[in-house]
Design a protein around this nucleic acid. Structure first.
Length: 732
DNA sequence: GCGTTACATATTTTT
DNA sequence: TATGTAACGC
């Protein structure tokens, strides 16, 4: 069997493992995708399993596509029928098939993060809850967490007053989703699990069908996904999962690497196979990575080894400040390129937070160097793109009030807040969807029973909009998708609305055209397939694959990628590990894994970079070296930078061009004149009144940077820190 | 409905 | 620092 020829013994053991439950723990660069793909090929070619009886799930479209390509190369036509896709896409597929058993119909739309936020805001308004005290983002994360753990609104625990609020918001949020004939990302999983649990025949159908279930990145599964897998493989019991606890970096999205341990508990007869040979990195890189990750608990220790030799030492560069840090990176990369030691596309700069990319970009720009920034502004997040998608969604699903709210007055057609609220009210009372009311208004005009609910002008403009909607609905079946798209653009005069003389306007229209191009590809499959893909495809998929420029990206975005030269910047306490991880050991362990993921992206060289001082929100502060650096054995490191000037002077290496010093910003302005003393106007225990927050008591007051900062406890909102010069505080 | 201003806020973001 | 947003006034 030639597909097994190039495998090492561990890989071969995994690919040809006996049926039943198999857990493959695959270190970075150990060929896990290869093993997964070959396992599918092995099932089909050697064991004669029919493709339609195989389900393979991944987390990203990219991973799914990658697998599909490799399988096609191996199997050709024989891959036809394999269910291969992301968790979410797989669930959506099942839900559409079984929608008669669910509280929404098969034209349901999938709400993305943006839509969710809109809906939660509306929920809060509905329930008269202060969105300052109960932030939509925090409500959503609580709801998401509940869904990931399969907790329904009725079962939401109410241990505190806050829980009580969340519970009410969760409940109402779900009702609104249902009114909109929509589901959110988490619902796709949750509903799929409920569908299987509450309808035994359905579960039987799918679990009979899927003789083999295979899973990629298993360490990133949450409770809902884990349960789903259990149900789907219940009948045949063939569950093949591949993952690496050490690369679990999505805890905050509900992922629980402990599912790896759970798997072994739940399936005591399962086989466990470790892939420990690394084909990517030099031994020095692996040794450093291992030193870092070995400090984590609850994991299977692995002995990663490489046959690529020790390689170069890891460079640790300590810059004087964050500007110098960025300048060093840009310079070092330029030197590498001009010395012919690397190509731009071989290099990446990784950081903990997106904000860190700004200084890098500036440094690259100043040096006249091209770069590729991952995850900056998202194509699908652009306003004009979202607008067009909202129109299309309304055609498919007129009940979608979030999309309706988005575009009913875009371009402006005189439908304000009041009219919109009246419309929703009328719809609720009639037990109809907002879209139906609009269409009825358009058809019957003043004779419509709804006309009375609005002022004369309101009824007219709403009817006009309803007319548009109804018109699109009629032609949807007969027009191709791009034709429908054009019709909407022309009916709404959308181009004239966004395209002005400015470059920005041109860009905007360009984005709309790009979306139309995408619609063109969906001529055959139609509107609903198009919308589903838009919802389930991530922005990562829109990144151009090929480029010969260095890549700038977050550590999260780097997972699964590899580069010859890797720079990791910001190795300071507070940034990596991030201060938000606080003293929670689980969070700290995740920060460590994140660093580990970054380290193991490197094939040849690693550059760890930090700054003695960096500016955070305006103020300039000294920073401590990251604790993770201390974990790397001294013998693997070569020191450069601020603290090591002597060594630098004695070495004639290219890592430190003299130029970088001049690349730093001009000396900063002299410190604010401290001679002009500022008097403290507020003292503890003073009673004050704020125009917004009302009455409060001064807790403390201090002069900082020539400004008086006052800490006040308000009766309405609690603790606030204010600038005396800005806040209009009144003594009472 | 639009532009201005004041102010709060500031991780990561596979789907 | 710089950015987004929410309330305010026209």
């Amino acid at each position: 069997m030639n597909i097994l020829d190039d495998l090492n013994s561990q890989q071969r053991q995994a690919v040809t493992a006996d049926l039943g439950q198999v857990l493959v723990l695959a270190g970075p660069g150990s060929g896990k995708t290869r093993v997964l793909t070959l396992r599918v090929a092995y099932l089909i070619l050697t064991l004669g399993v029919r493709p339609a009886n195989i389900l393979a799930v991944t987390f990203t479209n990219k991973a799914a596509r990658e697998m599909e390509n490799r399988l096609t190369r191996l199997l050709g036509e024989k891959i036809q029928g394999v269910w291969l896709g992301t968790f979410h896409a797989t669930c959506a597929r099942i839900l559409r098939r079984e929608s008669n058993l669910l509280p929404f119909n098969s034209s349901f739309v999938i709400f993305d993060a943006d839509d969710q936020e809109n809906l939660v805001k509306r929920t809060l308004k509905d329930l008269n809850i202060d969105d300052k005290l109960y932030r939509p983002a925090s409500m959503l994360s609580a709801i998401s967490q509940a869904k990931n753990n399969l907790v329904l609104p009725s079962a939401y625990p109410t241990r505190s007053y806050r829980d009580e609020i969340v519970s009410r918001v969760y409940k109402r949020y779900q009702e609104l989703l249902q009114i909109c004939n929509a589901v959110d990302f988490d619902d796709l999983l949750l509903w799929a699990v409920r569908l299987l649990e509450e309808n035994p025949p359905v579960k039987e159908k799918y679990s009979h069908r899927f003789e083999h279930v295979l899973v990629d990145e298993f360490q990133d599964t949450n409770m809902a996904q884990y349960r789903l897998l259990q149900h789907l493989c219940e009948f045949h019991g063939n569950l093949f999962v591949v993952g690496d606890e050490d690369q679990s970096i999505y805890r905050w999205r509900g992922a629980d690497y402990k599912n790896v341990l759970r798997f072994e508990d739940d399936y005591p007869d399962s086989q466990k196979i470790l892939l420990e040979q690394n084909y990517r990195s030099t031994q020095n890189v692996l040794d450093a990575a291992r030193a870092v990750i070995d400090r984590n608990q609850y994991r299977t220790p692995k002995q990663l080894f490489s046959e690529r030799g020790a390689g170069d030492k890891i460079v640790l560069y300590e810059a004087v400040d964050d500007h110098a840090e960025a300048a060093y990176v840009a310079d070092a990369i330029q030197q590498l390129i001009s010395a012919g030691k690397a190509r731009g596309g071989d290099m990446a700069v990784m950081y903990r937070t997106n904000a860190q990319s700004r200084l890098l970009e500036e440094a690259f720009l100043r040096a006249g160097m091209a770069y590729r920034l991952v995850g900056a502004q998202r194509f699908y997040g652009r306003r004009e793109v979202k607008d067009m998608i909202a129109y299309l969604r309304l055609v498919q699903n007129p009940a979608d009030e979030v999309s309706l709210g988005r575009v009913i007055n875009v371009p402006p057609r005189g439908i304000g807040d009041k009219t919109l609220v009246a419309l929703q009210l009328a719809a609720r009372q009639a037990g109809a969807s907002a879209g139906e009311v609009l269409i009825d208004l358009a058809a019957k005009g003043p004779d419509s029973p709804f006309a009375k609910a609005f002022g004369g002008r309101g009824a007219t403009v709403l009817a006009d909009f309803g007319g548009l909607l109804a018109g699109w609905g009629e032609v949807e079946a007969s027009l191709t998708l791009p034709a429908l798209f054009d019709r909407i653009v022309s009916d709404t005069v959308y181009r004239e609305y966004i395209e002005d003389e400015s470059e920005e306007g041109q860009d905007r229209w360009g984005n709309v055209e790009e979306l139309r191009l995408l619609a063109y590809e969906y001529q055959e499959r139609g509107l609903s397939a198009f919308l589903e893909n838009l919802a389930l495809v991530s922005d990562q998929d829109t990144i151009p694959e090929r480029s010969d420029s260095p890549t700038l990206l977050t550590l999260h975005a780097a997972k699964g990628l590899e580069f010859a030269q890797v720079f990791i910047i910001g190795l300071d306490e507070g940034l990596l590990p991030h201060s938000r991880s606080g003293d929670d050991p689980e969070e700290m362990a995740e920060e460590r894994r994140l660093f580990y993921v970054g380290l193991t992206r490197a094939k040849n060289n690693l550059y760890l970079v930090r700054a003695e001082r960096r500016s955070t929100f305006g103020s300039f502060e000294g920073s401590e070296s990251s604790r993770f650096i201390d974990d790397i054995p001294e013998g693997l490191i070569r020191h450069l930078g601020e603290n090591y000037r002597e060594r630098r002077a004695s070495s004639s290496s290219w890592e430190l061009p003299a130029r970088w010093e001049s690349a730093r910003l001009a000396p900063s302005a002299p410190p604010p004149d401290s001679s002009k003393k500022i008097e403290r106007r507020y003292r503890p225990a003073m009673h004050v009144r704020h125009p917004v927050w009302g009455d409060g008591i001064v807790l403390n007051s201090a002069i900082r940077d020539g400004e008086e900062e006052v800490d006040v406890h308000f009766e309405s909102v609690g603790f606030k820190r204010l600038l005396a010069s800005l806040a209009k505080l009144e003594l009472i």
